[in-house]
Nucleic acid binder design. Structure first.
Lengths: 338, 338
DNA sequence: CTGAAAGCGCTAACAT
DNA sequence: ATGTTAGCGCTTTCAG
């Protein structure tokens, strides 16, 4: 079955190719009669305009590129799905790449997106450094950064992480916890920096000392690393009053490690995660978590990007207010326990 | 920053455009000297060949299209991520669309993929009917169907659902359960049909009567629907010995509904899910599940697709053997309980 | 080994 | 209101 082109339609309808093109693009100056003819021909032939050719001829591609570290991570998965759905509403397609947290892959991905002539990009960089490295590349093509790992001078949509971490930490302090351990995140991540900032502010304000366990390696499985750290900790008999985990997935790993060591939350320690991903709400998990409003973030990012694509100028920045979803992994520490 | 084209490179290197093209494509008949020149020029200009133009000129797009019902579903999310990773290894990009289980969206998606000139497609259809409807469309472009909702005469990669369901049901029977309820799935889904087949075979073999609760509506949230069914059931005081849930996500909903009604697994009933998704392994869930080897499925599908793209003929079919992952949502029913 | 020229499918002035 | 004519950036015979 050969590809059906605009010529075929033109031939069948007995008009010129431009006329067909005009009909396809809703050009006003077309007689109703010919429009019918053409439409009928399209129908008969199952004609679908070739996006490549169209793009080449100067129209946009109606495609937006999404670059994320790992779309199987529920957090990104939600973001991507929301974005895809929102983009589809506006007639945009989405092309997706995972960088697996590798700055080199990230750079390649951005280049390939450009080669693909995406009309715009949604990027969640590995780190501000990696973002700045390829920041110049898009040259003109609109770009919104997702999450917090971006350098200065660019448009972004991010959750207010500092505030989220601060409020979570305050909550733990109010519950009477004093030895509060922040666990997880990769050194160099701005998200991490922001969350640590909120955490530290709370610690300082309450006269407590920060206790931070952060991954220094730049590649490899962060979750596994964190799980191992937690295990080691419990094995050594060290149990904080509470954990502020870098993410829900990490919180779950910590809880897992704890179970193995015969401990559990909230009995032996309280724990809060970040992101409020899908399974945190399961009664069996009931993880108290700082919610990032992923769906809203996905939509906002696409909306902003589309604004830019359609001529919007200037840098935009959306700071989404996080929300502490209280469930059942934290409990009040009684005075005598301290 | 203007787009840099092959002319710019040609000009800088002092050669013709064809020569640049040859270098870019690793054509053998090129003197080392000119190759160096050209490569240097590319480097200097940050030249990246335009994928659109290249596609238009007859080369493939090195893009594969993925059409799934819902990529935020952990099952598809895993599949997509595996596929994306595998495709990337071979230098292929991936473009993704969610159909949200709407046959019309599905058809549109397939058409758009064709318009995008994808070199091949991975499709997880809503139902065999919807697949057959657009089955003719791809006309020549290679296509692998994922999962079980495909009609006859097409290449596919699927898990052996019948066997999986059969073995799961047998396991429940061995545990001493007799009132075993199959809950979930959408009428018309072939996956459902296959699972039911396995379930029924086991029931019949053991002289038990099937008890099936299946969603008849063709759109809308399946998970919510199932949750509601389970709630209604518990509210009415009906509690099976065991559930065979259509999927893990549905199993979790059932468990949730149970908790609300003051019941829990495996105390009050046993339950097995399908898919062994990410969170089923969490100790807090510990859901016994029929594992679908999603990662392997993703890779196999891409591999087969690439074989086809590179000239492979004929229909392929991979039936992946499922595996029952025993965790802690099932228990032996004591004789006196019967 | 390299260049010139034709064309992939479509759009966008410019004519008519 | 419609047809004509150039390209868009690249590959690919076909000559040299």
């Amino acid at each position: 079955m050969k590809r059906v082109t605009i010529r075929d339609v033109a031939a069948l309808a007995g008009v010129s190719r431009s006329t067909v093109s005009r009909v396809m693009n809703g050009h006003p100056a077309i007689s109703d009669e010919t429009r019918q003819m053409v439409l009928a021909a399209c129908e008969a032939l199952h004609y679908v305009p070739d996006v490549m050719a169209r793009a080449l001829a100067g129209q946009g591609t109606h495609t937006i590129g999404i670059v994320v570290p790992d779309s199987s991570n529920p957090y990104f998965s939600a973001l991507c799905t929301a974005a895809e759905a929102c983009a589809a509403e506006y007639g945009y397609r989405v092309i997706l790449t995972n960088t697996l947290h590798d700055p080199e892959d990230e750079r390649d991905a951005v280049e390939r997106m450009i080669a693909q002539r995406v009309d715009g990009m949604l990027i969640s960089a590995c780190s501000p450094a990696s973002q700045e490295e390829h920041g110049a590349l898009p040259g003109g093509i609109p770009c919104i950064y997702w999450g917090n790992n971006h350098g200065p001078h660019c448009s972004f949509v991010e959750a207010d992480n500092t505030r989220g971490a601060y409020e979570a930490a305050q909550y733990l302090v109010c519950l009477g916890h004093r030895k509060i351990c922040f666990l997880g995140g990769r050194q160099g991540s701005r998200t991490l920096a922001l969350r640590l900032e909120g955490y530290r502010r709370s610690m300082t304000q309450n006269g407590l000392s920060p206790w931070e366990i952060v991954c220094q390696e730049q590649t490899g499985g962060l979750k596994d690393w964190c799980g191992a750290q937690a295990s080691a900790m419990f094995q050594a008999g060290i149990v904080p009053d509470a954990f502020l985990a870098y993410s829900d997935t990490i919180a779950v790993r910590i809880i897992e490690a704890a179970e193995t060591a015969g401990l559990s939350a909230p009995k032996d320690f309280s724990i809060i995660g970040f992101d409020n991903i899908l399974f945190s709400r399961l009664p069996q998990i009931g993880l108290t978590s700082v919610s990032q409003k992923k769906f809203e973030a996905g939509r906002t990012a696409v909306t902003r990007l589309l604004e830019k694509i359609n001529g919007g100028q200037g840098e935009t920045s959306d700071l989404l207010k996080p929300e502490l979803i209280v469930r059942s992994t934290c409990r009040k520490r009684k005075a005598k326990e301290r």
